[in-house]
C-alpha cells in the first residue's frame, strides 16, 4: 500500500495545495496548484488550477495554466487556459480552447542540444564499455 501512487478517486472533490507528490492520478473534481513529476487527469476528471509537471496525461477536463515537458492530450480531453510544452501529443478528438505555447528559449535549446549530445554520449559510453570489456 505504501508504494501506491497518490490518487483522487472518482466522485471525490478536492481543493487545496499538494506538494511532494511524484505522481498523481485524478479521477475526481479537483481545484489545486500542483508541482509534480507525472500527473494523469482521467476521463471523468475535472481539474482547475495550475500544473507544473514533467509529464501530463489529460483525458478529462482541464482549466488553467499547465507547464509540462511532455503533454499528452487524449481523444476525450477538453482543455481551456494555457498550455506550455516542449513535447506535445494530441489524439484525434482532443478539444482545445486555449493558448498553446512551445516554450522555446535558450534553456530549451540547450536541452535539445544536450539530448542530441546524449545520443553520441551513449554511443561513446558504449564504446568505453566495450573498451573496458576488451581490457
Amino acid at each position: 500500500m505504501s508504494d501506491q501512487q497518490s490518487s483522487i478517486g472518482s466522485g471525490a472533490k478536492f481543493k487545496g495545495k499538494i506538494t511532494g507528490a511524484k505522481a498523481l492520478e485524478i479521477n475526481g473534481d479537483v481545484e489545486a496548484d500542483i508541482d509534480i513529476g507525472k500527473i494523469t487527469i482521467g476521463q471523468d476528471a475535472h481539474f482547475k488550477g495550475g500544473i507544473k509537471a514533467d509529464l501530463a496525461v489529460i483525458s478529462g477536463i482541464y482549466e488553467g495554466t499547465m507547464q509540462a515537458e511532455s503533454i499528452w492530450l487524449t481523444d476525450t480531453s477538453r482543455v481551456s487556459g494555457e498550455i506550455r510544452y516542449q513535447s506535445l501529443q494530441m489524439d484525434r478528438g482532443a478539444a482545445l480552447n486555449c493558448r498553446v505555447v512551445y516554450n522555446w528559449d535558450d534553456t530549451d535549446q540547450k536541452s535539445k542540444k544536450s539530448k542530441t549530445k546524449d545520443k553520441t554520449d551513449e554511443q561513446s559510453d558504449e564504446n568505453i564499455e566495450d573498451n573496458i570489456e576488451n581490457e
Binding site: 501512487q5 497518490s6 483522487i8 478536492f14 481543493k15 499538494i18 511532494g20 511524484k22
Partner: peptide
Amino acid sequence: SKEVSVVEGVLT
C-alpha cells in the same frame, strides 16, 4: 501517499 503533503485541503 507517504511523500505527499496537503495543506488547506478540503476533500469530499
